[in-house]
């Protein structure tokens, strides 16, 4: 991990009509850092994550990935999105494409790669997520855990510098959670910069450099997993942790 922040979020504010989803969030994430975001439902975790690749447009504030401004309307958001992978709770695999095509689609469409190169990369990634034998399967023939691993491979195929995970295991049956977390753990060990919304304590302790507790659109408390889980300072953090532990 080096000290240069790769993501810089300054005073992020987002309102949906009368709902204030984000009320001024400041956050810097260093290259190679794994940051876990926890907090009650509706506290703005997804909105924060989705603002980083501009799936949501901030009402006020600024977000930069490296030197590129995400929030500047004139910046080329597609270039930034190539650098920032995202994994969704509901997988969102392209249902009309098979596994290999799911992974090669974006590189073939937006990058200058040949079919052969794209397929080679895809096969390497499939091996890495343990699904080398599934390349011709369609998403509806896969279990949830398998789909999520393909979704991770699909993001990695763009060779991103940052990965965003929005509750990647909450739609999964318990027995499939581990296979997805293991892939994420590997990724963390290899030095990927990760922003992860998840309440998986095991993953947090094993991989997170920092845990952030959000409530009502604000960061209430942050610290190492040890600090936050064993020795929370804020009453709201304590109450929340009692609730989920």
């Amino acid at each position: 991990m080096n000290d240069k922040p790769i993501i810089r979020i300054k005073n992020a504010v987002k309102t949906f009509g009368t709902v204030q989803a984000l009320r001024g969030v400041d956050l810097e994430i260093k290259q190679g850092e794994v940051v876990l975001i926890i907090g009650p439902s509706g506290s703005g975790k997804s909105t924060l994550l989705r603002s980083v690749n501009r799936l949501e447009t901030l009402t006020a504030g600024e977000i930069r990935v490296d030197e590129d401004s995400v929030t500047d309307r004139n910046s080329d958001i597609r270039k930034i999105r190539e650098e920032v992978g995202m994994v969704f709770q509901s997988f969102n695999l392209f249902s009309h494409l098979n596994v290999l095509e799911n992974i090669t689609m974006a590189p073939l469409t937006v990058k200058n790669v040949t079919k052969k190169e794209a397929a080679e990369t895809a096969r390497k990634l499939l091996k890495r997520v343990g699904l080398a034998d599934k390349e011709t399967a369609y998403p509806n023939q896969l279990s949830g855990g398998q789909q999520q691993r393909v979704a991770i491979a699909r993001s990695l195929a763009m060779n991103p510098r940052v990965m965003l995970f929005d509750e990647p295991t909450s739609a999964l049956d318990p027995e499939m959670i581990k296979e997805v977390l293991d892939v994420m753990l590997d990724l963390a060990k290899e030095g990927m910069t990760m922003m992860v919304v998840s309440h998986e304590m095991g993953f947090a302790r094993a991989a997170a450099d920092r845990v952030i507790f959000m409530d009502e659109g604000l960061i209430v408390e942050e610290g190492t997993p040890g600090d936050i889980f064993s020795n929370p300072q804020e009453p709201r953090t304590k109450r929340f942790l009692e609730h989920i532990l």
């Binding site: 690749n53 799936l55 597609r78 270039k79 999105r81 190539e82 920032v84 992978g85 995202m86 969704f88 509901s90 969102n92 695999l93 392209f94 249902s95 009309h96 689609m105 974006a106 469409t109 937006v110 979704a151 699909r154 993001s155 763009m158």
Partner: peptide
Amino acid sequence: KGQMEAALALGLSRSQAIRKI
């Protein structure tokens, strides 16, 4: 709508996402 979001998140333009996905 996750299909469009996944495509955009991968760096596709809106029209590419509409055509391909």
